[in-house]
Design a protein around this nucleic acid. Structure first.
Length: 422
DNA sequence: TCTGGGGTCCTAGGACCC
DNA sequence: TCTGGGGTCCTAGGACCC
């Protein structure tokens, strides 16, 4: 049996999460900012109506925020992750297979459900149930391929007459919608590629669907060829319900203030390393390679500089002390005094599973001390008994911490910040 | 003054081997 | 004078996604 994909996508997800706990904001324009309160990453429909663009730096719209009384939030990922989990759990109760595709959307395989109801009825039911259980509004696009399901969802969002559900299983309907959708709105077609396609006279999804897949592969890549085939109803992407093991782990931040002191930089990077190692342990992996970098602002007019260094370990590790001491050795050789560094980060790669760690000839097998120490620290954190830091992380966080001037309470993940009902 | 963070996949090109 | 071809592995960079 041919698969049928339903793409369920939350509307204005971050902004909607904030509104869930603030009914007083119901009809007000709300925006959510990226880390460091840098740019706009989510807008409520009222904010969209005020023509606030996605990704715009917040300092460029300060006046508008003030005059239109736009409500501003810093990102609160703990809250969004928790709401996301609730949405996904509800979807899992309604459909046989769920692939969590991102924090605010999921593909559901619904081919077998056609015997019970029409796809439109199914979509409306999903929408009503998520609304009732969580208070989150979703749109549903249903089609024989993931790319067409994305397109259907796009239509459901754009045209209110659809009531948020588009069944795109009918080829004639596919053609009609594709003719209306600009090619840059197709899943997998970004800025660069749409520009090149436009230059060739391909401006709509339908024109891309009608292009010759072999030619597209030659001129672009196998990736875009798959997109063309998917637009024609030929599935190239399947459901991926098992979370795949990560290939790399990245921790990077922009600083709240420019960093001009090497010792503070060392502390900041050590802190990122500690976070990364925690993520490694959560994934049950050890890394053989870590790289770190620090850089001046990409946008700054003044002099620029960045340092970058890859560190290879003989033996994979998830212990921050191992990575931090190597980073500490290398940092002075990369550092330049006088540059206002704006951002830094660490990347872990070359993962091994802890239970199959390969020792080299001269390595001592671990005595388990480090593992027990780290496990104890993780446990203390998990139980909320306080926070432990390695000395290399320092105690100067306020000097470089990201800005978060508008963060909402952790309504669902911290006892002290639970929502109150009066 | 003020511009996010975390991922994946693919490709081209170089090093190296036989 | 004449200077191969095919394979693998690795890395960097580019494109995309949310």
């Amino acid at each position: 049996m041919q698969p049928v994909f339903a793409l369920v996508d939350c509307n204005n997800f971050y902004a909607s999460c904030e509104k869930l706990f603030r009914p007083d904001l119901n009809d007000l324009p709300v925006i959510v900012l990226s880390n460091n309160d840098g740019c706009v990453v989510a807008r409520s429909k009222e904010a969209k109506a005020l023509d606030i663009k996605m990704g715009v730096p917040v300092h460029q719209i300060q006046d508008k925020i003030h005059h239109q009384q736009i409500v501003v939030f810093s990102s609160n990922y703990a809250l969004y992750a928790d709401i996301s989990h609730r949405v996904m759990t509800t979807l899992a109760s309604l459909t046989p297979e769920v692939e969590v595709y991102s924090i605010d959307e999921a593909f559901c395989e619904v081919g077998t459900l056609r015997l019970l109801q029409s796809f439109t009825e199914l979509g409306l039911n999903i929408r009503a149930t998520v609304q009732q259980h969580i208070g989150m509004t979703v749109c549903v696009g249903i089609a024989p391929t993931k790319t067409l399901a994305k397109l259907a969802n796009h239509g459901a969002k754009k045209y209110p007459a659809t009531q948020g559900v588009v069944d795109l299983t009918d080829p004639a309907r596919q053609q009609r919608l594709m003719a209306m959708v600009p090619v840059e709105d197709v899943w997998g077609v970004g800025r660069k590629i749409s520009k090149r396609l436009n230059a060739q006279g391909i401006t709509t999804a339908l024109q891309l669907a009608q292009a010759d897949p072999k030619t597209i592969r030659q001129q672009f890549s196998v990736v875009l060829e798959r997109t063309v085939r998917e637009l024609n109803g030929q599935p190239c992407f399947t459901m991926e319900t098992q979370p795949t093991a990560k290939q790399q782990i990245v921790v990077s931040r922009s600083f709240g203030q420019r960093m001009v002191n090497m010792d503070l930089m060392r502390e900041a990077i050590s802190d990122f390393i500690a976070t990364g190692c925690y993520k490694l342990r959560k994934e049950r992996r050890k890394a053989k390679t870590m790289s770190f970098y620090f850089t001046t602002s990409y946008f700054a007019k003044g002099p620029r500089h960045s340092g970058y260094q890859v560190i290879h370990l003989a033996q994979a590790s998830d212990d921050p002390r191992v990575f931090s001491s190597r980073m500490s050795q290398e940092l002075p050789t990369l550092w330049r005094d006088g540059f206002p560094y704006a951002k830094a980060g660490v990347m872990f790669a070359d993962f091994e599973r802890p239970d199959v760690t390969q020792l080299s000839l001269f390595d001592q097998p671990s005595d388990g001390k480090s593992e027990r120490l780290l496990a104890t620290i993780d446990q203390i954190h998990a139980q909320g008994l306080g926070r432990l830091y390695f000395a290399s992380q320092g105690n100067h966080q306020p000097h470089w911490q990201t800005k978060q001037l508008h963060r909402s309470p952790s309504y669902t993940t911290k006892w002290a910040e639970l929502a109150r009902v009066r």
